[in-house]
Design a protein around this nucleic acid. Structure first.
Lengths: 342, 342
DNA sequence: TGTTAGCACTCTCCTTTGGCGAGTGCTAAT
DNA sequence: ATTAGCACTCGCCAAAGGAGAGTGCTAACA
């Protein structure tokens, strides 16, 4: 924080300019484009100071300066001026997200498309975690003698499906009984609560086999068992090809290969993400393949207890101001549309 | 074919060598690596002839020759020597495809992974068409007052799900009645047959509103209405980055952007694919973005009438012999595993 | 007539060279 | 504390030259 006003102005100017042009910024450029009222020489001195403090870097002697990860960090934390979205953008977000969609999956897929279309970065959306999902009802559909299809409906009106194998086979009456029991007992609870609840007291009043009961409940809670895995939805994977910093095929490959690894991506985002909007810049990222990238993440809520995270992955030279505005706008719109229980 | 034995040998040698090295093949190379018993000069003459006939091309004066699309075509049609798979490869295919999988989607996803892992090309698998799927039973699950969830089970034991909106609302009895009727009347038929069948005679014996009936049947046939769309599963998208001919970022972008367009991909494959294994070489491809690529496609069958297509997309300089062997092996294994009704 | 050796020629690829431009750091003046 | 001036550094680019690979042609040969 030991930065006086002018140093901040210079740092802001450099980051801002570099984000727009992608080329190292020289002292002359700054004094021309940003009205700081001082000469290039003065700015040079400031730049020299900033470099020594670690906020700037020089690609090579006698090129301009570019921000270091630390420089971006300071910029994001203290200098950012988040603009507001244009009317059209707001409209577009609203329009796309309020398309008639039938499942959480569709919403999430649209979200990925939308984010990537608006930013020229790659959008990553983690499928909503079901452990917070509140069950409204459960239906057990007999498929074959040994298979049951479980259809759960969350408070938000979204579906959770599971195919359940029951080695022993099931009689239709048992199924009906079990279904009724599940609905009576579990409706309104989240999967997590169900899991936490002691189900020990069940046994005595059940008219069906414990085996069947356990199989079904286990499967219903299935996803909650492995919270570190989940579906990953991508949008605009090819956008990074348009970024000048990825004109290097090697870098492109690194990133694209990473994006195929759902598990890694999931973990990385889960690790980085916080409650509101979080930013992870360059080497701050847990995965070394992302050390040239920045990741902006946020939480979304679809109602009925379905929450998840999404992120935008771009070069460290990403347009933070715009992305912040956009992410904020998308979150607001989602809350507005799905926030109240539907 | 107006190619004498030696011309065939030369053509084979050039295609074979170019596929392996990726570099234009000169007359010296051929006489050294392939024992044709003639001197480079003679081969030069043959090459000159082959070029005039359109089977070869010269990138520039005084480089070696490379096969033209026509050259590859002749090679694929008449010269190919399909090797057999190694024991390990056969094992691997069998192992991967016989993992316990519960839905067609999972199988198809595994298929894409497998194909791309075994080649260094991009695997494209089109989700199975449901229009040939034979229905075993249908279950209608009430979700809310205005929503029904339709769960269909195919003869193969795979699921077809649809959410159906019924503006007017449904009484549980109507639903039960409708379900029973559907099962009596439609079981064992394919969606296509159901669609073709006149449902005009229905009206008189129905105790439920025509509206409800039509909504549900329409939705059940939904997919059949738009056969030109469908889910596309990819594997090994980044594999093309390893191909030397795609060291050009522009080309990479073209292909990767194409691969994000599910609808285009679907159409392209559907258009190209035939009954057995088909090959579409370079400019033979319907999409101009694929004019530098070859696409090998084949049909797969999952039982219960679920059939679809898959393909391998690589440079025209693709290893056709190996890919043929592999595709054949995969088809055989799939037939073996899922071919008989399960 | 088909095949082969010899040779001049062509074209790409790689490296070297030198000039240009942008930007810096230092010094001395204000 | 700020600024003008200036020498210096370094990457970029285009031009030049040499090496290598391969061809096409011609003339000799079986």
């Amino acid at each position: 924080m030991g930065l006086d006003k002018r140093k901040r102005q210079v740092l802001y100017a450099i980051v801002h300019d570099y984000i727009q042009t992608g080329e190292p910024v020289g002292s002359r450029t700054i004094s021309r484009r940003y009205e700081l009222g001082v000469s290039p020489a003065t700015i040079r001195n400031e730049m020299s100071d900033l470099e020594e403090m670690g906020y700037l870097e020089q690609p090579h002697t006698s090129a301009g300066r570019i921000p270091s990860d630390l420089g971006y960090r300071f910029y994001v934390d203290f200098l950012l001026r988040v603009p507001s979205l244009t009317r059209q953008e707001t409209e577009m977000i609203k329009r796309v997200l309020s398309l008639r969609m039938r499942s959480a999956e569709e919403i999430v897929q649209q979200l990925a498309r939308l984010l990537s279309a608006l930013t020229s970065y790659t959008a990553i959306v983690l499928g909503p975690s079901e452990s917070q999902a509140r069950l409204r009802q459960v239906q057990l559909v007999p498929i074959s003698s040994r298979q049951i299809y479980l259809v759960g409906v969350t408070d938000g009106g979204l579906l959770l499906n599971r195919m359940i194998e029951v080695p022993g086979g099931v009689a239709p009456e048992s199924l009906a009984y079990l279904q009724q029991w599940l609905n009576q007992r579990l409706a309104g609870l989240t999967l997590e609560q169900i899991k936490a609840q002691s189900l020990a007291d069940v046994q005595h009043d059940m008219q069906i086999s414990i085996d069947l009961f356990e199989t079904v409940v286990d499967e219903l809670l299935g996803i909650a068992h492995r919270p570190e895995a989940g579906k990953v939805y991508l949008g605009g994977t090819t956008n990074i090809l348009n970024q000048p910093e990825f004109h290097d095929l090697q870098k492109v490959r690194t990133i694209l290969e990473l994006l195929e690894e759902d598990a890694l991506i999931w973990q990385a985002i889960a690790q980085v993400a916080g409650k509101g909007i979080s930013v992870s810049i360059g080497t701050e990222n847990p995965l070394s393949a992302m050390h040239d990238c920045s990741l902006i993440t946020a939480e979304y809520r679809l109602g009925g207890g379905l929450v998840g995270h999404f992120g935008l992955l771009g070069p460290t030279r990403m347009n933070y101001e715009r992305v912040f505005a956009l992410v904020q706008g998308v979150c607001d719109t989602l809350n507005q549309l799905y926030g109240k229980e539907s």
